[in-house]
Nucleic acid binder design. Sequence first.
DNA 1: GCCGACTACGTCAACGTTGACGTAGTCAGG
DNA 2: CCTGACTACGTCAACGTTGACGTAGTCGGC
Lengths: 325, 325
Amino acid sequence: MKKSESTLHDVARKVGVSPRTVSRVVNGESGFSQATAERVQAAIEELGYRPNLLARSLITKRSNTIGLIGVSLTDPFFPEVAEGVQREARELGLTMFFATTNDEPDRLVAALDSMISRAVDGVIAFPVQADAGPLVQAANEGINLVIVHPAEPLPGINTISSDLAAGAIRAVDHLRSTGRSKIAYLGTSTRSPNKRAAGYLEAVGDEPRIVTSAPTAEGGLAGTREILSRWPNIDAIFAYNDIMALAAIQALEESGRSVPGDVAVVGFDNIELSAYVNPPLTTMDMDHVSLGAKSVRLLHSLIENPDKEPEHIVHPVELQVRRST
Amino acid sequence: MKKSESTLHDVARKVGVSPRTVSRVVNGESGFSQATAERVQAAIEELGYRPNLLARSLITKRSNTIGLIGVSLTDPFFPEVAEGVQREARELGLTMFFATTNDEPDRLVAALDSMISRAVDGVIAFPVQADAGPLVQAANEGINLVIVHPAEPLPGINTISSDLAAGAIRAVDHLRSTGRSKIAYLGTSTRSPNKRAAGYLEAVGDEPRIVTSAPTAEGGLAGTREILSRWPNIDAIFAYNDIMALAAIQALEESGRSVPGDVAVVGFDNIELSAYVNPPLTTMDMDHVSLGAKSVRLLHSLIENPDKEPEHIVHPVELQVRRST
DNA sequence: GCCGACTACGTCAACGTTGACGTAGTCAGG
DNA sequence: CCTGACTACGTCAACGTTGACGTAGTCGGC
């Protein structure tokens, strides 16, 4: 029962003009009378005509499409970034392709290939652990690319990074200002330079107390237990992310310590639920939604002006004080 | 420095064959010798040729593209569904368009139009509160469509629904089996028939205790306070979703009640964090990732066989017992 | 009453593919 | 040695648009 798709030709035939004239009306160009415009519009309504954007893109070399590549939507903060990307893309009239890689290099390459072959105007990527090589190569071949949170500096590529070191310093300073002095860092080991750890080290000054483990809830539980066995009298934990911080609170209470009575906890990310757990978590807010929106605006400016010099935007991180400190 | 995209013609010229032969090699058709295939492959590598999928789709009428339309990625469980959709789509060789609507009818229509104009092979939608009218109309025009969690039954449309009533009954039975008898339902008011409430009513038998409020953390706090003021001696709360359940725990502890000591709490959704809050939340697991995967498989079967009778798949809901009960 | 500018169209080719169909050459079988 | 089947290609048109360019008609000014 499929209504066969109608084309410019069908509309043109119905109205009695050439397809080119219908095209002009559809695209709001000039060169037609008010009267024909109205007849064309009526025919469009009646036939349920929709422009075929594939055909249009084939000739205009613009698809008004962008691609977003991330690791996984089961990560706690990527959905917020993606939502920001989606909202801003919509504002700019861009439709979005989406792919996740699970940090597998093959999937990154496949996703990128698929999007390029579909003539995206640009790509936003979060490669995280995976090798950014294919992305850099694509950018060198002329693909408009923005990398969010690159693992290492990429001078020739447009990037957006959150100011993690400043955030870590702010977090430690906050713990200090509430009278804590024995502050541990519940971190995670990465190949790349860890800016949170660097900020912690800079701010904590005296002897550092660092434990690393996986950036997951399980990792947070294990890491916290290790912290407690090595330094039983700490009075604060600064965690790599909110998930680990929430796990830390759980481990602390299991060990008979109260939060924030005995030990204060600060997270990093400000995922939505951090406001509603017990106690609500003090954390560093990265405003992921606007981070996503900002990356689309950067990509858009790149699309409009491809020869622009690469930018390296730093996105601020703000302290969100709640009851865990 | 953009390497100009090379086409079948470029490869063909380089090898000294016709574009049609290159096309045959690229698509793994028959009708070429091993020797030419190798020369073509070499030329493809050297030129960095990528097929232009827009041109291909324009003539084959297949884009190997699907669209996913949801409300918002800041909803707690939609990201998991989207991840499931993405993973299964990848397995089936489908690339995904993505859009969110924030429950605004205009945005639903715009997203759908954009995808159809880009020749998607099919669409998966979560309209939630918004009017499903435009979706139904698209389906009637021949767009392959799967609606996940439709607000009301749609006989002519392919749908996947979670078995919410059975889940609610299971939740109440579980509370009963742990010795609770005064069980309140912290619900939310919807225009559409609420299957969770229906299940609760069926299972609870005696006098129901129902309060409705917004399906958010704020709503959960307010609703729980109302429950406590109306029935101070309840011993269990069954919540509409995990967010409300977590808020309920918070409100209960603020009121001096312990969970699960004084009041047991059961949620609905099993969002990831429910396992890591304190106490970990007993909840109904909908396995959103596989729900998403299942919807892609249904859509795919529809694409392969568009004249198939509509299916109405019911996705099971399972009890996940943790420490809040 | 001729020129130039302007309006409102139309024509044609091209974007990069693939479907339909044609064909030269080879090879086995009778 | 002719026929028919098969292999390995090539040719042409079409998918639905838009860019480039052409043109008939109108109208104002001198």
